[in-house]
């Protein structure tokens, strides 16, 4: 077991420092790049916070859908193969729900401000 502060706490501290102390000092193209850097750290923080739970739920759905066991990567590869072969499609019970749940979890980490995501989130609300 590693010591604390946790990776989330450390990443947040760096992002806050860049956002609050460095942003006012920088201009032009470098300030655009700084914004990208802060966005990356915020994304990493969201992933560290959410990934464990969302991966576990994804694996559970994939096991039920595919009737097999494996890591989240292996199960995704297997599902991709079955869709490519036409063995599984949108008429397969649970597929649409699984893809929607998985995609919503990805957007929650990647781009929580994306308009399509916010619209779909409102539907669930």
């Amino acid at each position: 077991m590693q010591d604390e502060p946790t990776p989330v706490e450390l990443t947040k501290a760096v992002a806050d420092f860049l956002r609050n102390d460095i942003t006012p000092l920088i201009s032009g193209h470098q300030s655009f790049k700084l914004r990208v850097a802060i966005n990356i750290l915020d994304l990493v923080t969201r992933q560290l916070t959410q990934e464990e739970g969302s991966d576990a739920r994804e694996v559970e759905r994939l096991r039920a859908l595919l009737g097999m066991d494996g890591s989240v990567t292996e199960l995704n590869r297997a599902l991709a193969d079955r869709i490519a072969k036409g063995e599984v499609d949108l008429a397969t019970p649970g597929l649409a729900e699984h893809l929607w749940a998985t995609t919503m979890d990805k957007l929650a980490v990647d781009q929580p401000n994306y308009a399509s995501y916010k619209r779909e989130l409102g539907r669930e609300g």
Binding site: K33, V36, L90, A96, L99, D110, Q111, S116
Partner: peptide
């Protein structure tokens, strides 16, 4: 390039848009 790295993380935007086109929810 950080910009390229972050564009890689925008693929999921197209996944939600594909689902909205191919499997829209009520």
């Amino acid at each position: 390039s950080m910009e390229r790295a972050m564009i890689g993380r925008r693929a999921s935007e197209t996944e939600i848009d594909l689902l909205r086109l191919l499997s829209p929810r009520g």
